[in-house]
Design a binder for these strands. Structure first.
Lengths: 284, 284
DNA sequence: CTGGAAATAGAATGATTTTTCCAATTTAGT
DNA sequence: ACTAAATTGGAAAAATCATTCTATTTCCAG
């Protein structure tokens, strides 16, 4: 009765249940139907709760699991649970997996492999987690501002430089606070409530960037932040806050996803301002 | 200690954790960080398993839940679980819509979708086309050089700034030719045959960058180039030449793959220079 | 330093949940 | 309709799990 194949993925499980549906006894068939119709319940509820919802006895659920080759209800539930996480594996989880596949020797090409893969995951994460409204709000604010001040120090500086280049090319009024000559605060001083501060900052959040954003916020100046997670101080002191997760090696942060977000923002803004002409060739 | 507001949605929970993060004690803060980074674990694992993964005591998790206003761990976990069932497959939906409507409207999120996809392709291309020997040669040259001069102008500048940041942090002798005060050639003048020029340039190849690379080449100085294809002048005037293809919109070039290559180069160099680099924490 | 308060670790406890077991019931073959 | 085999129900046992409690450590003010 207990067969030898415990399906290890949700898809397999689905297939097995469908296939064996006909041959199952009445009660087990009833459970099979419930399971396919309510995979969330199967994943998250307790045996007795599921039993109640499916109007069967708890013990039948265990028999069902065993009939499918599992050694108990819990191991079957694990498969249902994986479905919930596999849909969107947390970014860190994926990185962890990457890290565990470290049987290969660490040659230069291996390192490149890993970083490209990590960057790919970061990009997926970016597009899956970024709320459309967030983008649209950011673009509205950018379009409405008189002048855009860009601030990003240390490892955030490349992103700031990139945004500065692109926004100038759109014809926007831009000021890059680049701290040349130690003039950080002087460069920021000309910010007015009609302007906007575009701040990029990652752990451990350059004090000057935080300070300037705080002051801007207090003055009622719009602040858009590109930062690295919910614990960033910028979630509190920005009007629009993009959270970009990336791979990190010591203090070296992969900026692939940030660059992609920046590019997207600027292209959208260009579209919004109708400064660019031919959008059909946009992705040619 | 137990406050009166038990957040009832995941979004609320996230907000509350972010807000109270600063005021929490060391261990609770540690849990807060883990929870935000691993919501799947929080939803599906048992107290002791989560405790083990976060390297805290089980009891601390209960204290954490209570500090947030819940009456126990289980009721907090309920909120994490809701997240798994409530979230819509917004991304997959978006893609489906994208593919079904050939004349998809160009919304902000669509642009982001397309750029992330383009960047992903660029990364794949990078991984597939980059010859291992090229990487290894580059690393050898970098390791052998006395001083690394980095030159990238206009849209290549963000990459140059990134390399500059990372190489300095490795403890390398680095000089970023940033043209501050129009001193481009003066900054390049101190290049000697023991040094190395790391040039980044894309179409249409900033004249100063080409000129400086040409002179360096003539002097027998090693040149490593990151550029955009076989038509680049740098294929001829560099010892090692990386060709990185990326999506391009008018003069805006996606730099995701370049950033990834740069990061990989630096990490490999770090490994090469001091074998003590902890490669187990490489993706921590 | 030193005393006191807050925070923490880890074992002990108590509650919940899964699993087992067997009697009761249904099913199928003769 | 009778019997044997298979299935099912339900309660009791086993296992797992969340929670509590207290000794110990850490932190901070004086």
């Amino acid at each position: 009765m207990a067969q030898t194949t415990p399906p290890s993925s949700y898809e397999d499980l689905r297939t097995v249940i469908s296939a064996r549906h006909e041959t199952l006894s009445k009660r087990l068939r009833q459970i099979a139907e419930f399971a396919l119709a309510n995979p969330n319940d199967m994943a998250l509820e307790t045996v007795s709760e599921i039993a109640a919802r499916a109007t069967v006895q708890p013990s039948s659920l265990i028999r069902f699991a065993k009939a499918l080759g599992f050694d108990g209800f819990s191991s079957m539930q694990r498969v249902f649970r994986e479905r919930l996480t596999e849909r969107q594996p947390s970014y860190r989880e994926r990185i962890k997996v990457l890290k565990e596949q470290s049987d290969a020797p660490l040659t230069a090409i291996t390192v490149l492999d890993r970083f490209t893969e990590a960057a790919s995951h970061a990009l997926n994460h970016l597009r899956e987690e970024t709320k459309p409204e967030l983008l649209e709000q950011a673009i509205e604010h950018l379009a409405a501002s008189q002048r855009i001040y860009i601030l990003g120090q240390r490892r955030a500086f490349p992103v700031a430089a990139y945004l500065n280049y692109m926004l100038s090319h759109l014809g926007c009024q831009v000021a890059l606070i680049d701290s040349v000559g130690g003039m950080t605060y002087e460069q920021a001083r000309s910010l007015t409530p009609k302007d906007l501060l575009l701040a990029i900052s990652f752990q451990s959040y350059a004090p000057d960037t935080v300070e300037i954003a705080t002051r801007a916020c207090a003055q009622g100046i719009k602040v858009i932040a590109i930062t690295d997670g919910p614990l960033s101080p910028f979630t509190a002191l920005s009007d629009v806050c993009f959270e970009v997760e990336e791979a990190q090696v010591e203090s070296f942060r992969s900026l692939s996803a940030c660059m992609c977000l920046s590019l997207s923002l600027v292209v959208c803004l260009g579209y919004r301002l109708e400064k660019t002409t031919d959008f059909d060739r946009l992705f040619a």
